[in-house]
Design a protein around this nucleic acid. Structure first.
Lengths: 197, 197
DNA sequence: ACCCTCCTAGACCGATCGGTCTACGACTCA
DNA sequence: TGAGTCGTAGACCGATCGGTCTAGGAGGGT
């Protein structure tokens, strides 16, 4: 997600393992798992090949799993930071979309969802996609949790969270091809929430 | 899109160029542009390398463009076939979602959107993504056209078509990780159309 | 018969891929 | 100071990548 709030702190140099995860997440988001070679990741992370295989004994697949998980955690933090101070679901959703739109602009408008870019085309599809499913369900259930907290019935919260997820994935993709983050900003208006929001 | 209605006709053998496009579209959908080597495409298309570079002098990028365009055309046909006989937008959208859900099951639940899988991670991002944008806008404007035809104002048709597009992209992706086409079948209910539908 | 064009056929090439391996610096603890 | 551990460093490997090249089969026109 290349969250700017998590950007490298100048004082304490990021440890090698974290640099690898960060570089991998960014590069995979832009060009996908197979579109990025180890050489490029290593050069961007300023690390030698030995370090990679020290921290990730299984090599590229391990690194991909780790970077997707890290990116997913960033997304969960973003969801929590948006919905926790909100007084209504609509407000939380709007905040989240605005944060994501800013993030989209910040990443240069070339990146896709770091989880799907990384895990949808892995070497052996099954375990990668299972992990992607696990991460995505985490996003959805986090949103659902806030929906219930903000007054939705469980059923309403579930379908709203799922719709919101789909609109976000499709919306980010459309923003990417249009190179225009307004698509993301306009999402909350499309959710057409009931009255209880 | 691996549309079963366009499946190989047993009587007349598909010409080499078409076999290449068809094989490329299927493989790219599953594992993305960089995830598939020429060798695999050639073996699946039963064609030698010379034929590929005869029909597509610029090699893999040319083939990718052609296969994404072909897949997009299949999608346009599917949209038209769903909306043309429909008496309301909701009916057309429902038909389309059911057709796509069947297609999803038919492809073995491993494939992504053939356009985004092929063009989002190409060798040189800019022209590929421009082409993807062009194809996607074609889908959206086709849906918008039917929305207007079925009684929507231009503005309503535009936002509805765009929402539908995003829900479809996000929904297909969610169906893929869940390996369950019901996500796609449930989309029309989420469109929350106005009253004029 | 001949040529000419269209297309098939696959050997071959350098570049790059992911992965392995050995060597060594930095630090801790005895 | 010496041993042991953790992590860095990069040379090196076979496999595979996309792409080029030459040769030849099929069929029509003359």
């Amino acid at each position: 997600m290349t969250d700017p709030t998590i950007a490298p702190s100048p004082s304490k140099p990021r440890p090698t393992k974290d640099r690898l995860i960060f570089a991998a997440a960014n590069l995979f988001s832009e060009r996908g798992y197979h579109g990025v070679g180890l050489a490029e990741i290593l050069s961007q992370a300023q690390a030698p090949k030995g370090s990679l295989y020290h921290h990730f004994p299984n090599g590229k697949p391990d690194l991909a799993l780790a970077s997707a998980t890290w990116a997913s955690d960033q997304m969960l933090l973003l969801i929590a930071a948006s919905f926790e101070p909100a007084d209504s679901f609509t407000e939380g959703a709007t905040t989240l979309c605005h944060k994501l739109a800013k993030l989209f602009d910040y990443t240069g408008k070339w990146s896709g969802c770091p989880v799907s870019s990384t895990l949808f085309e892995g070497p052996d599809n099954a375990p990668f996609q299972r992990h992607a499913a696990h991460l995505f369900e985490g996003w959805i259930s986090e949103v659902k949790y806030h929906g219930q907290r903000l007054g939705f019935t469980e059923e309403d919260a579930a379908t709203t969270a799922q719709s919101f997820y789909m609109l976000l994935q499709g919306g980010w993709q459309l923003a990417r091809v249009r190179r225009d983050s307004d698509v993301i900003r306009a999402l909350p208006a499309l959710l057409k929430l009931g009255d209880t929001c």
